[in-house]
Design a protein around this nucleic acid. Sequence first.
DNA 1: CTGTTAGCGCTTTCAG
DNA 2: CTGAAAGCGCTAACAG
Lengths: 338, 338
Amino acid sequence: MKEPLTIKDIAKLANVSQGTVSKALNNRPDIGAKTKKMILKIAEENGYSPNAFGKALRSQNSNTIGVIFRKEDIPLRNSFFSRILEGIEGELAFNRMNLVLYLMPDSESKQLPEMVREKRVDGVILVGTGNADFLKRLQQYSIPTMLVDPRQRMNDGPKLLIDNKSGAFMATEHLIQHGHRKVAFISGELSRPSFAERLQGYKNALTHYDIDIRKQYIRHHGFEAGYELTKSLLNEPDPPTAIFAANDINAVYAYKAINEAGLQVGEDISLVGFDDIDLGRLATPALTTIRVYKEELGSVAVRQLRDIIYEDSELHYTTIIPVKLIERDSVKTIVPDS
Amino acid sequence: MKEPLTIKDIAKLANVSQGTVSKALNNRPDIGAKTKKMILKIAEENGYSPNAFGKALRSQNSNTIGVIFRKEDIPLRNSFFSRILEGIEGELAFNRMNLVLYLMPDSESKQLPEMVREKRVDGVILVGTGNADFLKRLQQYSIPTMLVDPRQRMNDGPKLLIDNKSGAFMATEHLIQHGHRKVAFISGELSRPSFAERLQGYKNALTHYDIDIRKQYIRHHGFEAGYELTKSLLNEPDPPTAIFAANDINAVYAYKAINEAGLQVGEDISLVGFDDIDLGRLATPALTTIRVYKEELGSVAVRQLRDIIYEDSELHYTTIIPVKLIERDSVKTIVPDS
DNA sequence: CTGTTAGCGCTTTCAG
DNA sequence: CTGAAAGCGCTAACAG
């Protein structure tokens, strides 16, 4: 391997000083057009790329951002998170920035991640995480931080939220408009604010349409407990005719429980999900759901973080990303029997 | 924000020289036990972390590795790839190393990724990729590289392969042992060597059991074309009683086609997949499949790459990771009618 | 407009 | 065993 060229080598080849080369490469105004052209040509011809660390050390920014998920969410097996990551990656690549990925265990939230302490990254995006202490520590360190769908609503700092309430309202309303009065709700743990908000949207819809909220129709537990939750729902004395599952993964587990009970989704029981992950589209019948714009969540996070880092934007927005009802085949119109 | 401390600050606090602090922090032998202890204590108390870029610039390694997928594979929506990434992340985190993620478009394979040219990473792991030119260019640049399930078999350089032939043999054999003689094969594009090898394993099994290979039972197309492929198989004059799908995603699409034809998987038609992604476990009935140890693939890749980078291991292994048959509910025993 | 110089934070000789 | 000094590759301030 030919050792990679440094700015010094280019300077020598171009018969100018190092400083001049730097100016040419960085598009500084104080350099002659001809000199610049000549230098750029030589750099190009020799396949020169500046050393990232030299640059970062001097300029105090790394052109890199850190993306942190909770390890406990097993985010890479959950296409909801993976697709947010996809959006983040795309936007960073577009801006020729680097992405350092870290799946942080909850046990580490007593200290800052190494990439932050070592100053490897210019900012961080936290997805689905947000222990209050941890956030405070980041803020004290004053590293630009962007929260995406955080587990904790109370904090300053810029963040991106999903319009959970409206989405859940739409989902529930959709079922009601198809004649359902006995609509159940299943979700993961309500400690995750997104689920709590979806429950609220569900209740709002029932109330809005003058339907009683029945406690026994509301079940929440693990992230993937949809199977058991649905089974117990079906064993109710007066079982629901429809279920709103506050996340698609749970909805897909509901399919399994429903099928095993000898019933058919979209026929004997209607189902609406939330998130719109591929799993739902693939299911038979395809799942009606509330679409969350996951890639968008990622790319918007990057854009806002960039503003904060490089444009010194001081405003700490809270941005709410809208959702959309996607009608597929898991909802049937019925005539309410009451 | 209190400006982060540098090694200089620690030196001042400890009343020693910078060099001595460095030695203490890096566990060098040529330093007194007491001095070392004292320095470490002071560093600890003040929450000192060395600046990664200063360190990298001087020591010429970044403690970071780059992970590259093909953007065209949409790897983050495919749990097969995502889980390899999960394995890579886990092993890197264990070694306190950093992971830079890059989804490279095929169009970029004419040049080296920026993170490589800029010397941001000590090595790279390429997953599911491997344009020959691109690999050659990496080799010329002599950056340590590890290939995982590459699209190109012919190259030197260390690599990790999946035991596709054995797996496909086992899958097909499993169907044959359950009485099936009319076993079809569906897969994605055969240009991906993994699929070609799985086809080979399928053929080997048929031959081994003295069953004729029927051309019309072998279908391959897009990565997710399982729906159409299965539909056309079912319309054959003499349709198969079983299908071996060379990837689970296609198997799940097959479910959809089979259901729509009014047939039942595991009853009217048996199905075995390959990869073992969550989708298959969730399907009803649960999919019998060949498990690929995806996290393992990732962690082994990191371990071998680390050996090459830091231990100067010169040997370029080709490692073949075994697979395993996972029996679930999509295969039924039948009495062959021939 | 160009060159010189200092220094970002760190490790590593080399004297002492 | 410790300290002084050089230098990794780069940018920026300042002369000229």
